[in-house]
């Protein structure tokens, strides 16, 4: 099965987990995708190797950024019709709280889906959805 077939199947069924399995970096992070109502929530299960500050302890900030980028892309794929991987143009991550050594959840909100470019806001939290640990704004190339 090609990647495009996998994405097409995921978009048709609404289950994006096969896409995770097709991407080595997502598999390495053990990402899971769950559908919570209209939202696709990407879950990063905690692993000791994700720690960036052992004194607090806190997740590595790069990992929080990687999760937000991944969640933004996964939510975008779920919202678009073409069976292809959007390519990231840029991302700005705002760090609001240290990530604790717990599972981290994130979702992307597609704020604009144009013909060539999409804008996606992404949110990350742990436990309490109201206490975001980081947010991001990203652009993706759709062609």
């Amino acid at each position: 099965m090609t990647l495009a077939d996998g994405i097409r199947a995921a978009q048709a069924s609404g289950d994006l987990q096969p896409l995770i399995e097709a991407v080595p970096y997502f598999r390495w992070l053990k990402l899971r995708v769950e559908r919570h109502g209209e939202e696709l929530v990407t879950i990063l299960p905690f692993q000791d190797m994700l720690i960036g500050n052992p004194m607090l302890p806190a997740l590595h900030g790069g990992i929080t950024g990687a999760l937000l980028e991944s969640a933004a892309m996964i939510s975008l794929i779920g919202a678009m019709e073409k069976p292809k991987l959007p390519r990231i143009i840029n991302i700005t991550v705002d760090y609001l709280r240290p990530g604790r050594p717990l599972d981290c959840l994130a979702t992307g909100l597609v704020t604009k889906q144009g013909r060539r470019v999409a804008n996606v806001r992404a949110l990350a939290w742990q436990g309490d959805r109201e206490k975001l640990i980081a947010t991001a704004s990203a652009h993706f190339m759709m062609i």
Partner: peptide, 21 residues
């Protein structure tokens, strides 16, 4: 393990983020 696009073999942006952060 860092590959983000299995067809092109290009690494995922996340690992670039980890390096730059």
């Amino acid at each position: 393990e860092f590959i983000g696009d299995p067809e092109s073999g290009v690494v995922h942006g996340g690992i670039v983020t980890v390096l730059l952060d």
